[in-house]
């Protein structure tokens, strides 16, 4: 893994080459991102709750998803931008290196500016946890760590699937945004506020609900079901077929070519 961290440090160095641009992007990210939270806060200034969920419960939910997404943007952006790697032929170079293919893709690009979102997400998470008056126990603490981890995993898995699709064609990639960006926007809220169909979709097809909704119910005491506390573990299983599909794509690439 040493080479992975070396590559990340080189990315940071590259970005710092353009220092002014880096600082301004970083600041603007903070502002843009704050506007997201502002929408939620102003929503709750008018309505007391959404289908029984209070403001801090929604912010809790929101920050978990934002954390997972921003984490991938900083540490695995190459996977998100995999189509470029295929189009520009950089993937051939990866195949010429004696290291794991996926890890090499991860560090191919990075966006450290997004680290600002990561920090914001953690701050919002801590604030909402304090304001929520949670009766803490060991399971709840473990549960929150699992939520953060599974938030990372869910986007990682989706990026992997989208990347696998690039092996077949790099056209029509916008479809993936329905699942990543579109899904992300819905999953920022407790899935339960949406109709049944969405709940099933985000439970069984793209398991966002296991990342923040079910564990949220457990942490805030709306449910005592201990299974809910460990539901983020589903994502550790979900990622396995995604990795397999990706390697099938690699196999196809080396037999079909670009």
């Amino acid at each position: 893994m040493k080479y992975y961290f070396r590559a990340l440090s080189l990315h940071l160095k590259s970005e710092l080459e353009y220092r002014t641009s880096f600082i301004f992007s970083f600041l603007s990210q903070i502002l843009v991102f704050f506007s997201y939270y502002f929408v939620i806060i102003s929503l709750f200034l008018r309505f007391n709750n959404i289908k029984g969920f209070t403001m801090y419960e929604v912010l809790f939910c929101f920050s978990i998803i934002q954390f997972g997404f921003a984490f991938n943007e900083v540490f695995a952006r190459g996977l998100d931008k995999f189509d470029d790697l295929i189009i520009e032929g950089g993937f051939d170079r990866i195949l010429l290196r004696p290291k794991n293919i996926i890890i090499q893709i991860l560090y191919n690009e990075s966006d450290f500016v997004k680290a600002s979102r990561l920090i914001q997400a953690i701050i919002i998470l801590i604030i909402s946890l304090i304001k929520l008056n949670i009766k803490w126990n060991i399971f709840k603490i473990v549960c929150i760590f699992l939520m953060l981890l599974s938030g990372i995993l869910v986007f990682f898995s989706l990026f992997l699937l989208a990347a696998s699709y690039c092996f077949i064609t790099v056209q029509g990639l916008e479809v993936r945004n329905v699942f990543t960006d579109g899904g992300k926007h819905m999953a920022q809220y407790p899935i339960g506020i949406f109709s049944k169909g969405f709940v099933y979709f985000f439970t069984f097809i793209i398991p966002y609900a296991f990342v923040n909704y079910y564990p949220l119910l457990f942490v805030i005491g709306k449910s005592d079901n201990i299974y809910y506390a460990f539901s983020p573990l589903i994502l550790f299983i979900y990622i396995i077929p995604c990795i397999i599909v990706f390697y099938l794509g690699v196999k196809r690439y080396s037999s079909v070519g670009s």
Binding site: Y3, R6, A7, L10, K13, S14, E17, P98, K99
Partner: peptide
Amino acid sequence: LWWDIPTEDTFLLLKDIY
């Protein structure tokens, strides 16, 4: 080679990769 940084940095990455 990495575009925005000196060649020697790319060398260091290659040292780790190989």
